[in-house]
Design a protein around this nucleic acid. Structure first.
Length: 825
DNA sequence: TATAGGCATCCCTAGTGGCAATT
DNA sequence: AATTGCCACTAGGGATGCCT
């Protein structure tokens, strides 16, 4: 019989010694199902034909003992594949089970053979071989089989193939959040501290909601979703039952990979409760006990999506947020925040004031609700990335950027009969890491307040250069073009790219660019018709993100398709194009104010935009391929400042105001996390006023603020400086203020790890700044170091701006500081 | 096992030289 | 007179976070 289903989660198992892929998903009527299919693992090897017969005999006899039984080669065939542009013959070697691939290939490597694609995860291999995309409708031919070890019907497929691109319209999603007992502030200790409450927030395909909070303390309340159990053991048992009863397609949370699920797991282990939540009765898998924060949490058959992982790895660069806390991310993506509850007092409330626990239950449920909404919001993006890259969503959202690109290339490699180069070994990585090359060109601006600026930039500069100039490891230094192309790359020598045969990499990129152009048309149409465009936008974003990552990938030391010349040539062309554009503008009589990598700022004469647009068209006329210079915008005013302690114009630091009064800030303290809100606020106000020609007002405002500052009247929150810890505290050679504060926090039992953002205030006192750096709660109102905030925060933020108008730094604070100091002496 | 390089800025670190106190 | 200790000053570099 035939059936159609949407595969969502994947696994493989040996059945009577044979490898089977397990595709967990649902039918079009939302019934859950597991489809299995046998599949042969394989890899490739290359060896010299002279030894052919001898090698074949050895292959036949080879047996390596492994955990899953003796690893053997089941068969092999000779195939022609393209490796880095060269067509060659390889042996495709099939083995008896997935883990035999590393065992057998290791042995073959020891014989001196080159092995390829021996580290491709078996499930990824299968999906690519069958051309199946997760979340897309798949057709399977076969029969239902009985298996008592499954919680869902099991269907064995003889044949399986993609049916359509369709994605399920709705999912059954369950979000999860736990609260734990922690007397010592943020201490996390699953050995010692129990779980106090668990919140669930679910939604099914019919939009019916499910809300529940479990807790094991009895108290009076008015919450209809609260279920009280007798103790933590029962709490964990109920947790298990609720997941099993609800049967979600997707389980979600916020850092559920590294906190909620491993914590539940460790507490369950403590009481010897089995969390056999998998649809095959397998247990919840989480990271190791010692560093569970780093691990992944998996339940076989239920797709676990940790929103934080996706945001941190992939989606985050699209966000403005300075922190990846649930609160900050929810605010940006959903427009609402966490409930404000003093979570540090939960333990005390639990012990002594149980009647006040209701607030915490609400808080707990609300967090689960936020996780659910985040998942719903991000799911289209996760799905579109999944469909383009063709790997399980579980793996995808936990992947670094470079791996995303690599997996996209791997999928396409199969379609183009290209063999993947191996990942670099340790020595190779070390060599690559020593290599650097020149990047983009930045034009030094002359400090000043300018009027009437037109900004142009190259659309997708690097991707379009790669395709227009056929850059790629496969086309590098071809023998056919050597004589004619040897010195074609601007400013580069002794390498070139083929003019005849398109490289695999640039072909791929070109395909992405074309799909996106097409998509933009569809999107426009859909919008005009008032259709829902979320999915199309997600797809467009995914494609753009991927395309933009190709260049960085070729210069990345860990890449399979590493190609230093490719990266070098890409930036060399880019520098050439932007410099030529600048020259051309100057020849046309425009003054160029600034340029960075792919952008160019022109001064308009008498406000006339038309000549500038004409110039743009002329540039475009000469550009190859998909390259295009675009008009980014017109700005009535813009300010460029000097670098500190220098006459020279500062690069990457300017502000523009558009016709509708919107201010665009680049590089200034305003957009930097590690600057106090006070400095940001003052800088913003001053810039605003100056950009609308209110210089006097700006100065007046500033002096007022300085007076306030020196009088100790600035609110504490405005003085908080936030700085991230980026490594283990012990590996700092230079102890800055944030590290000093972090060390203090560590002493108090607060968990500090890379990624934590430290908040501190500089208090009065003497000595090094770090000696005065205090936790915000340690500093009483007015006890901040006003001199520090004046000379290290406020003045540096605005003196460059006022300098453009001809003011010296002393002019800015002299009179106000006298009145200010008068209060102290 | 971190997609790239370019850049401004802050603050610590280590080195230098000057000066006064000490041997 | 030579040595030591302290201080002020500065160049250089570690560290962070931005820009494209």
């Amino acid at each position: 019989m035939e059936l159609r289903f949407f595969p969502l989660d994947f696994d493989y198992q040996l059945r009577e010694g044979k490898p089977f892929i397990y595709l967990y998903g649902k039918l079009e009527d939302n019934t859950k199902i597991c489809v299995i299919q046998e599949h042969q693992p394989y890899f490739y090897a290359q060896f010299h034909k002279t030894n052919y017969a001898q090698i074949e005999r050895r292959l036949k006899e080879l047996i390596v003992e492994g955990k899953d039984g003796p690893a053997k080669i089941t068969s092999w065939e000779i195939v022609e594949k393209e490796l880095l542009g060269k067509k060659e013959e390889f042996f495709k070697i099939y083995v008896n089970y997935p883990k035999a691939v590393p065992l057998i290939s290791k042995e073959l490597s020891d014989w001196g053979l080159d092995c390829y694609e021996r580290d491709i995860p078996f499930i990824h291999r299968y999906l690519r071989d069958k051309n199946i995309l997760p979340f897309s409708l798949v057709e399977a031919k076969g029969k239902f089989i009985l298996d008592q070890k499954m919680r869902v019907p099991l269907f064995e497929a003889e044949e399986i193939k993609p049916f359509s691109n369709e994605t399920p319209p709705k999912f059954k999603i369950l979000a999860l959040d736990i609260e734990t007992y922690s007397p010592e502030r943020i201490e996390i200790n699953p050995e010692k501290n129990p779980i106090l409450m668990i919140a669930f927030y679910g939604i099914d395909e019919k939009d019916k909601e499910f809300r529940k909070v479990l807790t094991w303390k009895k108290f009076r309340h008015k919450l209809d979703y609260l279920e009280t159990v007798s103790d933590e053991v029962e709490l964990l048992q109920r947790f298990r039952q609720i997941i099993l009863d609800y049967q979600p397609d997707i389980l979600t949370g916020y850092f559920s990979d590294g906190f909620d699920l491993p914590y539940l797991h460790l507490r369950a282990e403590k009481y010897k409760i089995k969390l056999d939540l998998g649809l095959d009765y397998s247990e919840l898998e989480t990271g190791s006990k010692s560093d569970f924060r780093e691990g992944k949490s998996r339940i076989t058959g239920i797709l676990h999506l940790d929103n934080l992982k996706f945001i941190r790895n992939i989606f985050g660069k699209n966000l403005k947020t300075e922190s990846y806390s649930l609160d900050a991310v929810s605010e940006e993506l959903l427009g609402h925040r966490k409930h404000q509850v003093k979570i540090s007092e939960l333990a005390h409330t639990w012990d002594h004031l149980p009647d006040k626990l209701e607030d915490y239950c609400e808080y707990n449920l609300h967090d689960a609700h936020l996780a659910l909404q985040l998942c719903q919001k991000l799911l289209p993006d996760m799905i579109e990335f999944t469909k383009i890259i063709g790997i399980p969503t579980f793996d995808l959202i936990r992947m670094s950027f470079s791996k995303l690109v690599e997996n996209y290339i791997l999928k396409s490699a199969m379609e183009h009969n290209v063999l993947a180069p191996n990942r670099p070994g340790k020595n190779e990585i070390d060599l690559r890491m020593d290599q650097t090359y020149e990047g983009g060109f930045v034009y030094e601006p002359t400090p000043g307040l300018y009027s009437d600026l037109a900004v142009f930039d190259f659309r997708s500069l690097y991707p379009t250069i790669i395709t227009a100039h056929n850059i790629g490891p496969e086309s590098l230094n071809c023998s056919c073009c050597e004589l004619e192309k040897r010195n074609n790359i601007p400013g580069e020598k002794n390498y070139w790219f083929c003019a005849r045969k398109k490289s695999f990499l640039s072909k791929l990129l070109e395909r992405l660019i074309l799909i996106r152009v097409d998509l933009k048309g569809t999107l426009k149409e859909a919008k005009a018709n008032g259709e829902d465009t979320k999915m199309l936008e997600s797809r467009s974003y995914a494609i753009k993100t991927l395309a933009n990552s190709f260049y960085g990938y070729t210069g990345f030391f860990g890449a399979r398709w590493y190609c230093l010349e490719c990266a070098k040539a890409t930036t060399a062309y880019a520098r050439d194009y932007i410099k030529k554009t600048i020259e051309k503008a100057q020849q046309k009589g425009f003054e160029v104010v600034y340029a960075d990598t792919d952008s160019c700022f022109l001064l308009l004469k008498d406000k006339h935009l038309d000549p500038a647009l004409e110039f743009m068209n002329e540039v475009n006329f000469d550009l190859p391929g998909h390259m295009e210079l675009e008009f980014e915008g017109y700005y009535p005013k813009g300010i460029f400042v000097a670098a500190k302690g220098s006459e020279k114009g500062a690069k990457k630091r300017y502000a523009l105001i558009s016709e509708n009064g919107k201010i665009k800030i680049t590089g200034f303290e305003i957009v930097r996390r590690n600057s106090s809100p006070l400095a940001k606020e003052v800088q913003m106000e001053v810039l605003k006023l100056i950009l609308i020609d209110k210089k006097e007002e700006a100065l007046f405002y500033l002096k007022g603020k300085i007076k306030e500052l020196l009088a100790g009247q600035i609110a504490k929150e405005k003085l908080v400086i936030k700085t991230q810890i980026t490594r283990e505290l012990s590996s700092y050679t230079s102890i800055g203020p944030h590290v000093a504060v972090a060390l203090k926090m560590l002493e108090r039992g607060i968990n500090i790890f890379p990624g934590v953002v430290i908040e501190y205030i500089i208090a009065k006192g003497s000595g090094l700044i770090r000696e005065r750096a205090k936790l915000p709660e340690e500093v009483k109102d007015g006890e901040y170091d006003s001199e520090y905030y004046l000379h290290h925060q406020v003045l540096p933020a605005i003196s460059g701006i006022f300098a453009v108008l001809g003011y010296k730094e002393e002019d800015l604070y002299k009179d106000s500081s006298q009145t200010g100091l008068g209060q102290f002496f």
